[in-house]
Simulated scan of single mutants.
Amino acid sequence: MVHFFMQKVFIYYESSKNKKTVSQDNFLFRKMCDFIYTNYMNKLTLENIASMGNVSKSKAINIFNKYAQRSPVDFLNLYRLKVASEKLKDTEQSISEIALNTGFNQPSYFNRLFFREYNMTPSEYRKS
């Protein structure tokens, strides 16, 4: 599910880079997404994301709702979960290490979000 969502966002993102006329909101969305993609492992807040686009928190929320149908923080967490799912498949790192390395400060919160998104625990996902 996350993979499908991220794939759609990536396709949209890549196709919009080729258009000569890009709306200001689209430009800001891409700029804030680039910030998330580059800094997802750090502690990020709505304020950090909005400041990257030089917009208010409410404007950032509106832009993300328009282009991603999610809040900036939900978008960030989904991206973190996608990266974590790839690390679960491709590395031998512990689940706690993966959680911390993808920006989740509490492994229990990571486990809860992971289960909500993938309908299985991180360890079940790794085994499947």
Score class of each variant (00 low, 15 high):
Val22Gly: 02
Gln24Asp: 13
Ser123Tyr: 13
Lys89Glu: 15
Arg70Cys: 10
Pro107Asn: 10
Tyr37Phe: 09
Val22Ser: 12
Asn62Tyr: 12
Ala68Cys: 05
Glu86Lys: 11
Leu100Gly: 04
Leu44Glu: 03
Gly53Met: 10
Gln69Val: 10
Lys31Gly: 05
Thr102Trp: 02
Phe114Lys: 03
Thr38Asn: 02
Ser58Pro: 04
Phe75Val: 05
Thr121Tyr: 12
Ile49Gln: 09
Phe5Lys: 09
Asn18Ile: 11
Tyr67Pro: 02
Phe114Ile: 04
Asn77Met: 13
Lys57Val: 01
Gln7Arg: 09
Val9Gln: 01
Asp74Gln: 13
Arg116Phe: 11
Asn54Trp: 12
Tyr109Glu: 00
Gln69Ser: 14
Leu28Asp: 09
Ala68Asp: 02
Ser85Pro: 01
Phe64Lys: 03
Ser71Gly: 13
Arg116Thr: 06
Tyr109Thr: 10
Val55Gly: 00
Phe35Gly: 10
Asn18Ala: 07
Ser56Ile: 08
Tyr125Met: 07
His3Ile: 09
Ile36Leu: 05
Ser58Arg: 15
Ser58Leu: 15
Ala60Cys: 15
Phe4Arg: 08
Met6Tyr: 08
Leu46Met: 15
Arg126His: 11
Asn65Leu: 15
Arg30Glu: 14
Pro122Tyr: 12
Asp74His: 11
Glu14Trp: 06
Ser128Arg: 10
Asn48Pro: 00
Ser23Arg: 08
Gly53Ala: 02
Ala68His: 03
Met52Ile: 14
Asp25Pro: 02
Leu44Val: 06
Asn105Pro: 08
Arg126Met: 09
Leu81Thr: 01
Tyr125Ile: 07
Gln93Arg: 12
Gly53Tyr: 04
Val9Ile: 11
Asp90Cys: 10
Lys20Arg: 08
Met120Val: 01
Glu47Leu: 09
Tyr67Asn: 00
Gln69Trp: 14
Tyr12Cys: 01
Leu76Asp: 04
Tyr40Gln: 00
Ala68Gln: 02
Ala84Tyr: 06
Met6Gly: 06
Tyr118Gln: 06
Asn101Ala: 06
Glu124Phe: 05
Gln93Pro: 08
Glu47Met: 12
Lys19Trp: 14
Val55Asn: 02
Lys57Phe: 01
Ile61Pro: 02
Gln24Lys: 14
Phe104Ile: 00
Leu44Lys: 01
Thr38Trp: 05
Asp25Tyr: 06
Gln7Asp: 08
Lys66Ser: 13
Asn48Val: 01
Asn105Ser: 12
Arg126Tyr: 13
Asp25Leu: 05
Val9Lys: 02
Leu78Arg: 07
Asp74Trp: 11
